[in-house]
Design a protein around this nucleic acid. Structure first.
Length: 469
DNA sequence: CTATGGCACGGATT
DNA sequence: AATCCGTGCCATAG
């Protein structure tokens, strides 16, 4: 008897824990879904219109800004962290709203982001359903302007033929940053060549070499290429030079990278950020505001009416109703806990990585989840879960995964990137190591090569300071 | 001989 | 326990 009670209790708490953990590791989108599905099956859960601050649980004034949590507590405070209720992040609107009738013009290109820019160009040629597909494709491009998801997946998702997707991709590829929406550098180059043929002179067999021997070319294996394509080394050099001067293997980066701004498409999914970070009143001198998105408006609570009625429930329902109530209050508790953890996590994170947030990638300080867990006095896995599956929009409108805050090499990588950008003669990896050592950064030559590859920077002999279009 | 990529090992991180 | 990351060693091309 006593034993059984104990066991039940243990089961309850372990269920409790299990749910706390899964909820903590969910993104805002997933939370939204979770709540929606729970609402539809559980009569004990209720979403009311009351506006309650999810951080401190006080009633919110009409403007939805909590006077307690969303203001500076003192003058010298450097950041404000709070949970904000928002359900106004409509995913589809992203593309459909940007009206598609305008001419593409160079001026606006610098201000709007890549997906919008491309969509404007091709919009007029698209059917409505194709617009959806195009929007999806464009928003899921990675930072190089490549498509990451597979055509088949998308086709299934939208219930259309793969060939239809391919058509849309073709259109995208021939829009302005020529070659965006390819799957890899090779494809991008081929698109660019096809487009340029007839406009300017292209060395013999350039297309053939890229199509059939791309890997060899990348690795500079001239001998094999000359065997396969019956070309002299000199001809191959001409081809390589031509590519370097006229084409760009990374269309997305060429377009936005030249201006020093990477585009802001997130690279795995098209989720909206779970966390927003911006300057108070958009003034960089002001403190940082950190909004942790809670994707519901109104207040989630146990339906009081249902609770009262359940006391005189019919025999056969007693168990079920009680269960419903437990589930509802458990879910609410877990959500509170998630909010609490996220707020605490973000507080130390802005504190530690403030310079990274404000002044960019090279200012990131390498930290680990384990360190944070000690700081907050929680288990490491708690931090792991809290960091997992979340994305952050930084003040510069870039969306990055929260795990980027724990990137141990980002600072060095950006330094290398800058170094290469400023270089007069191409720096070899060994040279880069020297410079870095001089700056107090001690890494192996091999590692520089890896970082280079990560940033999509070509090896020294392949880049003749020509990445211009 | 120099520059760079591939493979794989070991230690740290999650 | 699984995964990630930096690195050393070796092969290959020039």
């Amino acid at each position: 008897m006593y034993q059984r009670q104990k066991q039940e209790l243990r089961q309850q708490t372990s269920a409790h824990l299990a749910q706390t953990m899964t909820i903590l590791s969910m993104s805002a989108d997933e939370i939204r879904e979770k709540i929606a599905s729970e609402l539809s099956v559980n009569p004990a859960l209720e979403l009311t219109d009351e506006r309650i601050c999810p951080t401190c649980h006080r009633l919110l004034p009409d403007n939805g800004i909590c006077p307690n949590c969303c203001t500076l507590k003192s003058e010298d405070e450097e950041s404000i962290v709070f949970v904000s209720p928002r359900d106004d992040f409509a995913v589809e609107n992203y593309a459909v709203h940007s009206e598609l009738s305008h001419e593409p013009d160079m001026d606006s290109a610098q201000h709007e982001d890549l997906p919008t820019y491309v969509l404007r160009q091709i919009g007029p040629d698209l059917e409505d359903d194709e617009k959806m597909i195009a929007a999806y494709l464009l928003t899921s491009l990675d930072e190089d302007g490549f498509i990451t998801s597979s055509v088949l997946e998308i086709a299934q998702y939208y219930h259309v033929l793969p060939s239809k997707i391919e058509e849309v991709i073709q259109l995208i590829q021939h829009a302005d940053p020529l070659g965006v929406g390819s799957r890899n550098p090779q494809e991008a180059l081929m698109v660019q060549i096809q487009h340029l043929s007839g406009l300017i002179d292209i060395p013999d067999k350039t297309l053939d070499v890229i199509r059939d021997s791309y890997d060899l070319l990348i690795h500079g294996k001239y001998r094999e290429i000359s065997k396969i394509h019956d070309l002299t080394t000199k001809q191959i050099n001409t081809i390589e030079k031509f590519i370097g001067e006229n084409l760009n293997p990374y269309p997305g980066r060429a377009y936005w990278g030249e201006k020093g701004i990477d585009n802001n498409v997130d690279n795995n999914t098209y989720h909206f950020p779970d966390i927003l970070i911006y300057y108070l009143n958009d003034n960089p001198k002001n403190p940082l505001v950190v909004e942790i998105i809670m994707p519901i408006s109104g207040n989630l609570k146990v339906n009081e009416f249902f609770k009262r009625e359940s006391k005189n429930a019919p025999e056969d329902k007693v168990e079920e109703w009680k269960n419903d109530i437990d589930r509802a209050s458990l879910l609410i508790k877990c959500l509170h806990q998630r909010n609490n953890t996220m707020v605490r996590l973000m507080e130390v994170l802005v504190d530690l990585q403030g310079n990274f947030i404000r002044y960019g990638d090279s200012n990131i300080v390498p930290i680990t989840r384990a360190q944070i867990s000690k700081l907050l006095d929680v288990h490491e896995s708690t931090i792991s879960r809290a960091v997992a599956n979340k994305t952050v929009m930084l003040p510069n409108k870039k969306v990055v995964p929260l795990s980027a805050f724990f990137d141990r090499s980002l600072n060095v990588r950006t330094i290398i990137k800058d170094l290469v950008k400023e270089e007069k003669k191409p720096l070899t990896d060994a040279k880069i190591v020297e410079v870095l050592t001089g700056m107090g950064i001690d890494i192996a030559r091999r590692t520089v090569a890896k970082y280079r590859a990560m940033e999509g920077i070509l090896p020294a002999h392949m880049r003749n300071s020509a990445n211009l279009r």
